[in-house]
Simulated scan of single mutants.
Amino acid sequence: MQFDSLKSEIIQIINKPDADVLPKMQAICDVLQANISYYDWVGFYMAHATEPTLHLWSQAGEPTDHTVIPFGKGICGQVAVSNKNFVVDDVHAQDNYIACSIHVKSEVVIPLFKDGKNIGQIDIDSNTAKAFTASDERFLEWVNEQVATIL
């Protein structure tokens, strides 16, 4: 399975001694977007320390204007409030969806926890409808666990 083969590559990125956090997070975005065919956009949004907003730290795929997202707005903003995974099979059926690209059909957002606190999330957009499965959720939870170790 492609997820298992990517785990060792992600561990290598996490354990790279000469790289800072942001380049490591960027490398993870790049690896996921390049190696999983239906991961068309991959990004990490991190919670601001004092304001209820998410800030884009790294991303792979088309550039986005959505670099700051208020808690509660869009799928990412909802995950910041709910602390739960959110899988959207059809983004056009979501009332609170923030459109980043006309090509996006589905999205998955997985919260990133550090010491039990939701400090951010990984956000994946796909140009394929119903692209994400429970296997994607488990894999992305694992990715976030690895990222949490360097934050």
Rank of each mutant, 00 (worst) to 15 (best):
M25G: 05
I28C: 02
D115M: 10
D123R: 06
V21R: 14
A129K: 14
Q59W: 06
S8V: 13
N127G: 08
L56K: 13
F71N: 02
A129W: 03
D30V: 06
S82L: 10
I124S: 08
L151R: 12
D40K: 13
S101H: 08
I150F: 10
D40H: 14
A47F: 07
P52H: 03
F86L: 15
H55N: 13
P63W: 05
F86T: 05
F71W: 09
I75M: 09
K105L: 14
V31T: 14
F113W: 00
Q12A: 15
K73W: 09
S101W: 04
I119E: 04
N15S: 10
V91K: 00
G74A: 11
N85C: 09
D18R: 02
K117V: 15
F3G: 00
K16V: 08
M25S: 07
T128C: 05
G120C: 05
Q78T: 13
D90R: 06
N96T: 14
S82M: 08
T64A: 04
K24S: 03
S58Y: 00
D4L: 06
G61F: 11
I11K: 12
F44Q: 01
Q12P: 01
I110V: 11
D30N: 09
I13V: 07
N85F: 02
I150H: 05
L140C: 03
H66M: 10
D20K: 15
H55K: 14
E107V: 12
I11V: 15
K117E: 15
Q2M: 06
D18Y: 03
D30I: 06
A34Q: 15
S106I: 04
Q146V: 07
I69F: 01
L140G: 01
F113I: 00
V79H: 02
L32S: 11
I69G: 00
T149F: 13
F3D: 01
N118Y: 00
A93M: 11
T64D: 05
E137D: 11
N83S: 05
T149L: 14
G120W: 03
Q2H: 08
E141V: 15
F132S: 00
D115V: 03
D123M: 07
L54H: 07
F132I: 02
D123S: 12
Q2Y: 08
F132A: 01
P17K: 10
I36G: 04
N83G: 04
